[in-house]
Every structure is written in structure tokens, then in C-alpha cells.
């Protein structure tokens, strides 16, 4: 697959308002996104995700490095680059609330140089696909948040670009609408478009994304396939049930020795990630210290959220990832 988006050693430093203090939002960030890929851009709050997204969209200029979209430099050849990318950046705030669903679609298409007539059939198709038929002539102001979110995505789809960038597409949606939006995103991905999703909604990543780029403190922390990360953690995650609670000393030793996923409130069970099979003997040694009887020890299934938390919290050692041939930048 050829590269559609390329970030080449980009950095961005902000000067804090009213002071001389500077904050590095993004530092020497590099990664590529191939045509047709579905990538989850993740990171804790303040990691530099929004800055990265806006630099990809050409809304913020990097201090150093380059962003190429379809081989066009987003700074120097902005207008050409923007023919290949559209975005939903602020969800329902990306719309004109005193215009109807159809009027919004027509207006944004018009601003890309399309006549209302030339996009009419595509608008009809999108309205049908996004189940907005009954709201076609409704003011955006009167729509539910979920409907507004769907319309914002439809506007981005109408641009007909190769890549669609979605910032928090399920934020603030109820479970049902969130699921509906997720299904729409799946349909978009199946159309063969390149989709970049920035989100805190881990089930969305686990469910939709092929690959994830995790950013922390402005740098790429992990760049890998979601399935590989899941597999890596899944095969090494164990749940341990005990007959009596762990002592404080045991908890401390476990934390120092393993990438512990979580303890139960009563400290009578916990899940743990073992780096290699022999580590189970070390685990048993810690439990034996206080003669803590083990009631059950099982391989456990893992959610991507747990993987993410471990990666971001630095509970996975670099060598652990490298030994598994995973990129840990």
C-alpha cells in the first residue's frame, strides 16, 4: 500500500500566554499512514494529539519537520493537499445550527467548489446511509447530539476525499448512538477510505482500527497493529484468585516485579502480565512469602483499554516490546 499521509520529524512548541515559558506539544514526531488504513491516534490528555491532528489538516504549522498529504506539503502546497483530506474536528460544532441538514451539506460542498446540482445524488445517498431522511429539512439546532454528529461525519464524507480524519467521533453520545456511529465508521472504512480516528473510546479502536499510534508527551510511544498488541498482552495476562488478601509487602513486590494490570478492591484477586513463562515461578515465590493460597490461576481476556493504560503508564518495559518485535519509539 502506498503512503497517503507522512509526518516527517514534526515538532511544535507553544509559548504560554503572558509569559516566556514554552511548552513542547509535539517533539520529533514521525509516522506514515498508508492508503486504505484505519488508524487510531491515541494518547492521554495533553499528549499532543490535537496538535498533531491539526498539523495533518494544515490548521497549525509545525515549527520543524513536514507533513505530506498525498505527496503534497501541507504548508507549501496546502490547497492541493486539502483535496485529499477532510475532517470532523469539533463534532456537532462543525455545523451551521440555523441551517437545515440538506442546507449544511450543500453549503460545505459549495465551499469546495461543487454546485448544488452536481452533489444532489451524493447528498441523497449520504442522507439515506446516515439515516437522516426524516430530518432532511430540520434545522441542525433541533437535532439530537447524535444526529448532529452523524451529519458532521456526512459533511466530511461528502468532500469525497481519500482520507477522513475524525476527532472524538463518539464523544458525548449515548450507548445506542455511539454504536450507530461506530457502525457508520465501519461502513466508511469498508469503502476503502483512509480513516484516522483520534479518540478516548477504546472499544472503537479495538473494534475498528487496524493500527494504532499512541502519542505520549508529544512523542510516538507505540506504533503497531491493534491485533498484535492485543495478542501480545492477551497471551501474557493471567487472573489470579487467592484464598486470603495480599499483604502490603506482597503488593509492593508485585508492582515492582510485574506489569500488574489491576488489583481487586479486597486484594483477593488480581490480573498480571507475565513477560515470559518462567515469570510464573517468581509470582509464586511472592505469594509463598506470606503463604497465600492460590484458588485459581487462569489466562484472561484483555480489553484494549487495559493495553493502552499499560503502555501509557510505562508499565511495559522497552525490552519487553522489542523482544516481541513491536515498535516502541
Amino acid at each position: 500500500m502506498s503512503t497517503l499521509i507522512e509526518l516527517e520529524a514534526i515538532s511544535k512548541i507553544y509559548k504560554k500566554r503572558g509569559g516566556k515559558e514554552k511548552v513542547a506539544a509535539v517533539t520529533d514526531l514521525s509516522f506514515e499512514i498508508a492508503r486504505g488504513e484505519i488508524v487510531g491516534l491515541l494518547g492521554p490528555n495533553g499528549a499532543g494529539k490535537t496538535t498533531t491532528i491539526k498539523m495533518i489538516c494544515g490548521l497549525i504549522r509545525p515549527d520543524e519537520g513536514h507533513v505530506f498529504v498525498n505527496s503534497f506539503d501541507i504548508v507549501r502546497e496546502r490547497q492541493k493537499a486539502l483535496r485529499s483530506i477532510s475532517a470532523v474536528l469539533e463534532g456537532n460544532r462543525n455545523l451551521y445550527w440555523r441551517m437545515t441538514v440538506q442546507e449544511n451539506l450543500e453549503y460545505f460542498a459549495g465551499n469546495r467548489g461543487h454546485s448544488a446540482r452536481s452533489v444532489r445524488s451524493e447528498i441523497n445517498r449520504l442522507i439515506e446511509q446516515f439515516r437522516l431522511e426524516s430530518k432532511r429539512h430540520e434545522l441542525v439546532n433541533n437535532l439530537s447530539r447524535g444526529m448532529q454528529q452523524k451529519l458532521a461525519i456526512a459533511v466530511a464524507m461528502l468532500a469525497g476525499t481519500e482520507a477522513v480524519l475524525l476527532d472524538e467521533p463518539t464523544l458525548g453520545l449515548d450507548v445506542e448512538t455511539g454504536y450507530e456511529v461506530r457502525e457508520l465508521l465501519r461502513a466508511i472504512a469498508q469503502e476503502g477510505r483512509t480513516v484516522i480516528i483520534s479518540t478516548h473510546d477504546m472499544p472503537v479502536v479495538q473494534d475498528l482500527c487496524e493500527r494504532t499510534v499512541i502519542i505520549s508527551s508529544g512523542r510516538v510511544l507505540v506504533d503497531d497493529r491493534v491485533s498484535s498488541l492485543m495478542k501480545l498482552f492477551e497471551t501474557k495476562a493471567y487472573s489470579v484468585s487467592l484464598a486470603k488478601p495480599l499483604s502490603q509487602m506482597q503488593v509492593t513486590r508485585l508492582k515492582a516485579t510485574f506489569a500488574v494490570l489491576s488489583f481487586a478492591d479486597d486484594y483477593k484477586s488480581f490480573t498480571v502480565t507475565l513477560e515470559h513463562d518462567e515469570a510464573i515461578y517468581t509470582l509464586m515465590d511472592i505469594l509463598r512469602l506470606e503463604r497465600t493460597p492460590v484458588e485459581a490461576l487462569d489466562r484472561t481476556s484483555i480489553h484494549f483499554e487495559q493495553v493502552f493504560r499499560q503502555l501509557v503508564n510505562g508499565q511495559v518495559k522497552n525490552h519487553q516490546m522489542r523482544e516481541s518485535n513491536h515498535v516502541l519509539a
Partner: peptide
């Protein structure tokens, strides 16, 4: 304020012309 300015800037038509 509305949040639509960045959308205008996402158009391949220069924002000044819009």
C-alpha cells in the same frame, strides 16, 4: 465561536476567497 472556522480552512478553496 461556532466552531466552523476550521471547517472553512479545510476547504481546498482558499479561506480568503470563501
Amino acid at each position: 465561536t461556532r466552531g466552523t472556522l476550521e471547517q472553512l480552512y479545510m476547504s481546498p478553496v482558499p479561506a480568503w476567497f470563501i
